[in-house]
């Protein structure tokens, strides 16, 4: 009797061992693949050869260019740290702006400054919101320039104002909201640790920590596959495309809410931008 029980235990233990060594092998293969990807990233992330810095340079020119009916520059635009103060501004966006009495992300704030300070008709700027093979995007370039002024700093989510609190809660709700023909939410793909789609690793954004920090710390980024500097605004547009949802409105409060939520999950994460990705 005792012997039988012992044998049963042994068989069970052996089964678990066999199973876990199989899993361990698969895990080792995945770790190797990820190490290779990491090596590739390190290889291409040289600032001297990252084309994303061309966008930063174009953004610097645009920031100081006189435009609009008022023929003035954007240099008096307040991105939250005071008029014209760019250092660290991106690390604290989205945030509440008293003059507009609303929470804005970087795109919303830039458009607001163009319209209010320069009296610029932003129709053309909005049409070129995402750069293509034949044209650059002022918005992508300006975001690259301003975000780069927070490189080396850490994300500091803003949540003291009631409207910032609402924005964060809305972003969280949108993150977990299932809809559309795929029944997906953001959390379907980004709700657990260590998951992947095909071979692509998926960062977990359902909790604060390393995944969110590492991911947000690298946006905006130069996408090699698209030959474009891309912002988180574009990445979320692309996520909704893959989720088979309609194209989300550019610079809408929904995108700002999701960004605010993601920045909160990435609190304390170091910003190194523009990065370069596949």
């Amino acid at each position: 009797m005792r012997n039988v029980r012992f044998r049963g235990l042994f068989a069970a233990a052996f089964g678990v061992l066999a199973l876990s060594s199989g899993l361990a092998m698969a895990q080792a293969q995945q770790d190797d693949a990820e190490k290779e990807i990491e090596r590739y990233r390190a290889m291409i992330s040289d600032p001297m050869s990252n084309p994303g810095f061309l966008a930063v340079d174009r953004g610097e020119v645009l920031w100081a260019a006189k435009r609009g009916k008022k023929d003035v520059t954007l240099e008096t635009c307040d991105l939250g740290e005071g008029p014209g103060k760019l250092d660290g501004a991106y690390a604290k966006l989205p945030r509440y702006f008293q003059d507009a009495d609303r929470v804005m992300d970087i795109e919303q704030r830039l458009l607001w400054c163009m319209e209010k300070i320069q009296d610029l008709d932003t129709a053309d700027v909005r049409r070129r919101r995402f750069g293509g093979p034949d044209y650059t995007s002022d918005m992508q370039d300006l975001v690259a320039f301003i975000a780069n002024k927070s490189s080396g700093m850490k994300y500091q989510p803003q949540e003291s104002h009631p409207k910032e609190k609402e924005m964060l809660a809305a972003g969280e709700a949108l993150f977990f909201r299932r809809a559309g023909v795929m029944d997906f939410s953001c959390a379907t793909c980004h709700g657990d640790d260590g998951k992947r789609i095909r071979l692509q690793a998926l960062p977990n954004f359902s909790k604060a920590g390393k995944d969110a920090q590492d991911t947000m710390g690298g946006w905006p980024t130069y996408r090699v596959s698209q030959s474009q500097l891309r912002t988180m605004q574009h990445r979320l547009w692309d996520c909704y495309r893959q989720m088979r949802m309609p194209a989300p409105e550019y610079a809408s409060d929904g995108i700002t809410a999701l960004t605010a939520y993601m920045v909160k999950m990435a609190a304390g994460g170091e910003i190194t931008v523009p990065s370069i990705k596949r």
Binding site: E166, L168, A170, A173, R177, A179, M245, P248, E249, G254
Partner: peptide
């Protein structure tokens, strides 16, 4: 989960998709 009035969430959903063309418009409705 942080508590939030569903009507407020709907406002944010509309900010993204109220102007979506047909037949996309109704896709975000749960």
């Amino acid at each position: 989960p942080t508590k939030i009035d569903p009507a407020v969430v709907d406002k944010y959903v509309e900010s993204m998709w109220a102007k979506a063309p047909d037949p996309w418009k109704t896709v975000p409705v749960q």
